[in-house]
Simulated scan of single mutants.
Amino acid sequence: MKFFKHFALGIRSYWKAISFIKTHKLYWYLPIPAGLMLLIYYVGSEFASWQAGWSEEQGCLECANMNETIWFLLKMLLSISIGLILMKFAKYIVVVLLSPMISIISQIVEKKLTNNKYPFSLQQTLHDVKRGLHIAMRNVMWEYIFFLLILIVSALGWDEVHQSPFFYLTFAIGFFYYGFSFIDYINERRRLDIDQSIHFIRRHRGLAVAIGCIYSVFILVPVDLGQMVNYEGFLDHPFQTLGTSLLHFSLWMLASIAPILTIVAATIAMHDLVDLSENEFAIRNNSPQVSIDKSEN
């Protein structure tokens, strides 16, 4: 029952997060991931255009020997890879690049909720970066192991792995590890070590799944930024072209706001769960706290 109780807490925290962002004007942060995503996509498209300008014949004509031919092929392969990564995985790269800002936003939310402040420390910052990398690598490793196990079981029992009911467990596992990553930002400030954070999140896995579930819906929806700005067929099919553009614009906006909305929701949920005002590692002032409806733990 605790799983569903904590799951409901995580879902409710998203509704509170929307209101919180509006009330405290945190929406000024929203253009940052949106602009960053467009910038990454633009750089990727430029790489793709640059590579498309090369011709195999020209490359061979420029190569005087085997070493130059191999170097040309490696350069072409690298440019294609970079272009595809930047264009197809822009929203995932954004989440990684935004990690420092996500941590700062979480601190801002906690300060408004509890008046907690955390003094800047270069040593602590470096420690947090190292910890974040450790957590990320651990989560990716375990998620990949579970994915392989489920894939093997599904392949043994069903002709098509997607027909196996076990296959859908991969989504739930992904939800858990996404939520894990966001909750750990708060556990860092509570000075829980990695083992303590893992134990805490396992005991509150319903919260982690809820936080990761909504985030995944936003970040995993297919969005093609190229289609958003493609109006070549507007004269022939104006409504279809405009509709496609608006659809991908909406999906782009959802993917852009996902990291900020999720970290606000995670911080609010953790405050409801453990009362962050009792964190002994924070510095407090005497300003009045923000009033927010507390959910049952």
Rank of each mutant, 00 (worst) to 15 (best):
residue 259 P to A: 00
residue 189 R to Q: 01
residue 270 M to W: 05
residue 148 L to D: 02
residue 48 A to F: 03
residue 259 P to W: 06
residue 220 L to S: 03
residue 37 M to E: 01
residue 297 N to T: 13
residue 161 V to H: 03
residue 57 E to Q: 10
residue 125 T to D: 10
residue 83 G to E: 02
residue 143 E to V: 02
residue 236 D to L: 11
residue 210 A to Y: 05
residue 273 L to V: 06
residue 69 T to N: 11
residue 50 W to C: 06
residue 115 N to W: 03
residue 246 L to N: 13
residue 166 F to K: 01
residue 233 G to F: 13
residue 178 Y to D: 06
residue 190 R to K: 14
residue 94 V to G: 08
residue 131 R to Q: 10
residue 28 W to M: 13
residue 66 M to E: 14
residue 271 H to E: 00
residue 162 H to V: 11
residue 106 S to V: 01
residue 164 S to P: 09
residue 249 F to E: 11
residue 54 W to R: 13
residue 53 G to F: 05
residue 212 G to M: 06
residue 71 W to P: 04
residue 55 S to N: 13
residue 126 L to E: 02
residue 208 A to I: 00
residue 123 Q to W: 02
residue 294 K to L: 12
residue 235 L to F: 13
residue 149 L to S: 04
residue 161 V to A: 15
residue 180 F to N: 15
residue 204 H to K: 14
residue 85 I to F: 03
residue 136 A to I: 07
residue 256 S to D: 01
residue 188 E to L: 10
residue 168 Y to R: 13
residue 163 Q to A: 13
residue 170 T to M: 09
residue 142 W to H: 07
residue 143 E to L: 09
residue 225 L to W: 05
residue 278 E to M: 08
residue 146 F to I: 00
residue 103 S to F: 04
residue 243 G to R: 14
residue 220 L to M: 01
residue 286 N to G: 15
residue 134 H to D: 10
residue 124 Q to C: 01
residue 285 N to L: 02
residue 96 V to L: 15
residue 30 L to P: 12
residue 47 F to P: 07
residue 12 R to C: 15
residue 292 I to Y: 06
residue 58 Q to R: 11
residue 77 L to D: 11
residue 48 A to Y: 03
residue 144 Y to R: 10
residue 112 K to L: 14
residue 233 G to D: 15
residue 99 S to L: 10
residue 224 D to F: 03
residue 85 I to H: 00
residue 101 M to K: 10
residue 181 S to I: 02
residue 235 L to D: 06
residue 281 F to I: 06
residue 207 L to S: 12
residue 25 K to Q: 04
residue 153 V to G: 05
residue 54 W to F: 13
residue 178 Y to I: 11
residue 275 D to L: 13
residue 182 F to G: 04
residue 253 M to V: 14
residue 77 L to M: 09
residue 293 D to H: 07
residue 1 M to V: 08
residue 274 V to D: 00
residue 279 N to S: 11
residue 29 Y to S: 11
residue 182 F to H: 06
residue 40 I to P: 07
residue 143 E to F: 09
residue 238 P to A: 12
residue 229 V to W: 03
residue 15 W to D: 09
residue 176 F to L: 11
residue 195 D to V: 00
residue 271 H to S: 04
residue 196 Q to K: 13
residue 25 K to A: 02
residue 106 S to L: 01
residue 145 I to N: 02
residue 60 C to G: 04
residue 120 F to R: 05
residue 125 T to Q: 12
residue 208 A to R: 00
residue 164 S to D: 08
residue 214 I to T: 13
residue 216 S to N: 07
residue 40 I to M: 01
residue 286 N to E: 14
residue 139 N to V: 01
residue 230 N to S: 07
residue 134 H to G: 12
residue 143 E to I: 03
residue 97 L to R: 05
residue 289 Q to G: 07
residue 122 L to Q: 01
residue 152 I to V: 15
residue 244 T to H: 06
residue 19 S to E: 09
residue 27 Y to K: 14
residue 258 A to D: 00
residue 53 G to K: 12
residue 286 N to W: 03
residue 263 I to G: 02
residue 198 I to M: 03
residue 217 V to E: 01
residue 29 Y to D: 03
residue 50 W to N: 08
residue 153 V to M: 04
residue 65 N to C: 08
residue 16 K to C: 04
